[in-house]
Simulated assay, not measured.
Amino acid sequence: MEFESFIQSVAQQKKPGNLSRQLEALWYDGIGDWQKAHDLADGPSDRLSARVHAYLHRKEGDLWNADYWYKRAGEARPSCSLNEEWELLVKRMLEM
Rank of each mutant, 00 (worst) to 15 (best):
M1N: 01
E4A: 15
S5L: 12
S5N: 14
F6C: 10
F6E: 08
I7K: 13
Q8A: 12
S9D: 15
V10G: 00
V10M: 03
A11P: 00
Q12P: 00
Q12A: 12
Q13K: 15
K14W: 11
K15T: 07
K15A: 15
P16V: 09
N18K: 08
Q22S: 11
L23N: 03
L23Y: 09
E24Q: 14
L26K: 03
Y28F: 15
Y28K: 04
Y28D: 01
D29L: 02
G30D: 00
G30N: 03
G30K: 03
G30L: 02
G32F: 09
D33P: 00
D33M: 07
K36L: 04
A37T: 03
D39K: 11
L40C: 13
L40I: 12
A41C: 14
G43S: 12
G43K: 15
P44F: 11
S45E: 13
S45V: 11
S45L: 10
D46M: 05
R47G: 04
R47I: 07
R47S: 09
R47T: 10
R47P: 02
L48F: 09
L48I: 12
S49M: 08
S49P: 05
A50K: 11
A50E: 06
A50V: 04
R51T: 02
R51Q: 14
V52W: 07
H53I: 12
H53M: 12
H53A: 12
H53T: 13
H53D: 06
A54D: 07
L56K: 08
L56C: 05
H57Y: 15
H57C: 04
H57L: 02
R58D: 02
G61P: 09
G61E: 08
L63H: 12
W64S: 10
A66Y: 05
Y68L: 01
W69G: 11
Y70L: 08
Y70A: 08
R72W: 02
R72Q: 15
A73G: 13
G74R: 05
G74N: 12
G74H: 12
E75H: 14
E75C: 10
A76Y: 13
A76M: 14
A76F: 12
R77C: 06
P78I: 05
P78K: 02
C80D: 11
S81Y: 04
S81G: 02
E84M: 01
E84L: 05
E85C: 00
W86I: 00
W86A: 03
W86G: 00
W86P: 01
E87G: 00
L89D: 01
K91F: 07
R92D: 14
M93F: 04
L94M: 06
L94C: 07
L94V: 01
